[in-house]
Design a protein around this nucleic acid. Structure first.
Length: 832
RNA sequence: GCGGGCGUGGCGGAAUGGUAGACGCGCCAGCCUUAGGAGCUGGUAGGGUUCUCCCUGUGGAGGUUCAAAUCCUCUCGCCCGCACCA
């Protein structure tokens, strides 16, 4: 018997797959295309090509591959494409450091990843490979930008934005993590700039509502998105400013507490701050405070337990419910980006307002009473009372439960024209412009006469020009390329300049899954029918770190395309699986910590089949797990065991027609039963639960049993047939996990192409033994195990239990209170 | 602070109301041997033991149930997300 040499075997079969184009999905002309009911779109999040793949990628793509191969073997027309999220800052930063052009770097890196994925034997349809930095791709990214612009969903506005001083670019809200840049953790600064936004807030309601359409998404991802969108119901209430012809609306979720408003707050950035303080003695102090607040880094400002500060404007607002004058202050705990940038402050019932009022000696007036909190307890209150109760100090609403009072007060305000019900979202519009080089240029032209003019569709793509120096400088490096910048206006023909910002790379990855369905199309982004055939994605797999960013943007994009009648579905990903991370030596793998486990080294040493198998055997795929160097050895040993077992069977038995296992000897039937049970277990674990680790352990059990039984079975004709059957079963079941060794062993067993073989089905007759081990308990404690017939009824089981000597010992001299019988499992005798 | 998740042998984990610790790693023992970084077989939660059983055991404390790792309440620890969102 030859030794198991993964390197040779894996190369051999990868070549076969490539030559035979085994994994290419059918085109419409092909007969296989017709059966749409069986299509399955399996997709893993596309890699960002920075260097080479790491273990997390290996896990991701192996999982996807197992699902894709499993579904293909189960009759699905499987669609399993791959591409590269190839624009982006990482590449650009490396380019700046090394002097190699980003395009060149991208080519090297995507080449590496392509090679690695081939080496891992992932069943990808390579004919659909794409890179988002390819002009034939980003041309359509730009096209969508124009479509968004036409609909008013892409707009430019001067706004406070997050600026990363290290990356020298603005960031979307979603890319600010704990006050720092998502990429480099540098504290983000607040600045005001004219930037391009996508109006994702218009879709807030649909993004929430359409969670219903999803088949299977992790609950926590939905929760994270729901929290991010942050829908709040409440009221918008108009507060007139005394002595000025000025109304300022506020948003509140607590209209029930309106009578308790004792002051009024504006965000420092609020546009009316200037007008309100104009000519007032307090003007200078307010301006100074507002300027300081504006310049504070986000990370300093967004800390909840910071002491509240503020400054009085000298003006008063009029509370519309009782005509009371309340002082207007400016404070930086009021955020311009949320609600209206102004709030009514109710210190008795809001902890933040409470702290502010106590610090500045403002009245605290109770309007919701509860235990120990009465109408007059405001001055003595130690913290805000935020629970339920009945209204007090609230005019004609006194005595009403505060939950009902909110609606009543809002209705009353509405009838008076002083307010209305309102819904507010935490979600902000998506800032998509970036002042960096390596991205898709925003297809916009500025003309002195015509203003903002979109580039005509026929002029797409707007090619990213070459520049000498793409180091960040606060504006896009392509602004230095005058040949690019200077152009003529498509409308009037006069001199004009191009937009020089590029698009956030999350725009690129918001529609790539559609391009796969029609990757070569040069007339449109994709054919609607082709997209409708393959989409939505049946199983999407990726890291949970994209729970909000990519997954929300892609959902938004799909909804806009639906409204543009470019697709006929509203959700791109029916089922989502988020995988856990792989740790090593107790920490996340990272280059800086020097604890990176390199996939290539392990493929060199053990082969792709072993690496794939181990990575799935480590634990449930959704959990974080720790890489163990010795663990992979065990998996390699197991494949070696499979190799020797199957080869020995090939050598010692002939392919036989023997199939009447029911008539075989006892040992043979036992193994046949085990094999069928394994088929059932693996099928269920892979298809229903994605529990690859338990599926693999089931095959290990079968192999262990086969080792124990084989020497006996080689001696009989029935045994020979059984061993052949077991060998074929093991190879078939292991195929999605370790496809190369299985393809090879399948061939050695005298067959041809394993991947066209249907997935095995368990034979019902062999799933259950005729006898089983009955557990007998006394008072819930295990006391005896008895071999009983599967057909035994409750009475027989009880009789068997009672006839046991051990049981007799335990119930002797005691009163039998209850007998619980669960056929197929146990008997529990309760005694006193 | 709010929301979510997780706590099981020396380790990764299995068991989702019914035999706790499948499978694998590690360790121990035996066999085999053209002596290997091999292979095969057995053992391996803790304690006691007449070697067959007994007791204890799934972070901790209570509860529901004939029966709880699993369901409920409280509590401790760790991890993740959000964090002045009115």
């Amino acid at each position: 018997m030859d030794k198991y040499t993964p390197a040779d075997i894996e190369k051999k079969w990868q070549q076969v797959w490539e030559e035979e184009r085994t994994f290419e999905a059918p085109d419409p002309e092909e007969p296989a295309y017709a059966d749409r009911s069986g299509k399955s779109y399996v997709l893993e999040m596309l890699p960002y090509p920075s260097g080479t793949l790491h273990m997390g990628h290996v896990k991701n793509y192996t999982m996807g591959d197992v699902i894709a191969r499993f579904r293909a073997r189960n009759g699905s027309i499987t669609f399993h494409p791959m591409g590269y999220d190839a624009f982006g800052l990482n590449t650009e930063n490396v380019a700046i450091k090394t002097g190699i052009h980003p395009a060149e770097l991208t080519k090297i890196n995507t080449g590496n990843i392509n090679r690695q994925l081939h080496r891992l034997g992932v069943s990808i349809d390579w004919s659909r490979e794409l890179a988002t930095c390819d002009p034939e791709y980003y041309r359509w990214t730009q096209y969508f930008f124009l479509k968004f612009f036409e609909r008013g969903l892409a707009y430019k506005k001067e706004a406070p934005v997050n600026w990363c001083p290290s990356c020298q670019t603005v960031l979307a809200n979603e890319q600010v993590v704990q006050g720092g840049c998502e990429r480099c953790s540098t504290p983000v600064e607040q600045t005001s700039l004219a930037q391009w936004f996508f109006k994702i807030t218009d879709y807030a309601e649909r993004l929430l509502k359409d969670f219903d359409q999803l088949q299977s998404w992790p609950e926590r991802v939905i929760t994270m998105q729901r929290n991010w969108i942050g829908r709040s119901e409440g009221a918008e209430v108009i507060f007139p400013v005394e002595e000025l012809d000025l109304d300022i609306p506020v948003f509140t979720t607590r209209p029930d507490t309106l009578f308790g408003a004792t002051f009024f707050l504006l965000a420092p950035e609020h546009e009316l701050v200037g007008r309100i303080t104009e000519g007032m003695a307090e003007a200078d102090a307010v301006t100074k405070y507002a300027n300081e607040a504006r310049q504070k880094p986000l990370i300093d400002r967004a800390v909840a337990d910071r002491e509240k500060t503020g400054v009085f404007t000298g003006r008063y607002a009029v509370n519309p419910v009782n005509g009371e004058k309340i002082p207007i202050w400016v404070s930086d705990y009021v955020l311009m980006e949320y609600g209206t940038g102004a709030i009514m402050a109710v210190p008795a019932h809001d902890q933040r307002d409470f702290e502010f009022a106590r610090k500045y000696g403002i009245e605290v007036r109770v309007v919701v009473s509860g235990e120990e909190v009465g109408a007059d307890s405001g001055p003595g209150l130690e913290s805000a009372f935020e629970q339920e109760g009945n209204l007090v100090n609230s005019g004609r609403f006194d005595g009403v439960n505060n939950r009902e009072a909110g609606d009543a007060i809002t209705a009353w305000l509405e009838s008076e024209g002083k307010g209305k019900t309102a819904i507010s979202y935490r979600l902000r519009d998506w800032l998509v412009s970036r002042q960096r080089y390596w991205g898709a240029p925003i297809p916009i032209i500025y003309c002195d006469k015509c203003g903002i003019v979109p580039v005509p569709e026929k002029d797409l793509p707007v090619l990213l020009p070459d520049v000498e120096d793409y180091a960040p400088k606060g504006k896009s490096p392509i602004a230095a390329n005058l040949e690019f910048v200077n152009t003529s206006c498509p409308q009037c023909g006069g001199p004009a300049t191009r937009e020089t910002d590029t698009m956030d790379t999350f725009v690129d990855s918001s529609w790539y899954f559609l391009r796969y369905t029609d990757p070569k199309n040069d007339r449109e982004a994709f054919d609607k029918e082709l997209a409708g055939y393959w989409m939505p994605v049946d199983q999407y797999i990726g890291g949970v770190e994209h729970a909000i960013l990519h997954l929300m943007y892609a959902r938004f994009f799909t909804k806009v395309l639906y409204d543009l009648d470019l697709v006929d579905f509203e959700e791109p990903f029916n089922n989502l699986f988020t995988q856990g991370m792989i740790y090593y030596q107790g920490a996340k793998m990272s280059k800086s910590k020097g604890n990176v486990v390199n996939p290539d080294e392990h493929v060199d040493r053990y082969g792709a089949d072993t690496l794939r198998l181990y990575i799935l055997f480590m634990g449930p795929p959704e959990l974080d797990v720790e890489w163990q160097d010795q663990g992979i050895e065990g998996t390699f040993r197991f494949l070696g065991r499979v190799w020797r077992l199957v080869n020995e069977i090939v050598e010692k038995t002939a392919p036989s027609e023997y199939s009447d296992f029911a008539k075989a000897d006892v040992e043979s039937v036992k193994l046949v039963r085990k094999a069928n049970q394994t088929i059932a277990k693996v099928s269920a674990d892979v298809s229903e639960r994605f529990r690859f680790n338990t599926a693999i352990s089931a095959v290990m059990e079968l192999v262990n049993d086969a080792y124990l039984a084989k020497d006996g079975l080689f001696a009989t004709e029935a045994g020979n047939g059984v061993l052949r059957f077991v060998a074929e079963t093991v190879v078939k079941l292991l195929d999605p996990f370790s496809p190369h060794i299985c393809a090879e062993l399948w061939q050695r067993l005298g067959n041809e192409r394993l991947w066209t073989e249907p997935w095995p089905r368990a034979d019902e007759r062999f799933l259950e033994d005729e006898t089983y081990e009955l557990v007998v308990q006394v008072n819930g404690k295990l006391r005896e195990r008895l071999r009983v017939s599967r057909s035994a009824g409750k009475q027989e089981l009880l009789a068997a239990a009672h006839s046991s000597e051990k049981i007799a010992r335990h119930i002797e001299g005691k009163e039998l209170v209850k007998e619980v019988v669960v056929p197929g499992r146990l008997v529990n005798l309760v005694v006193r």
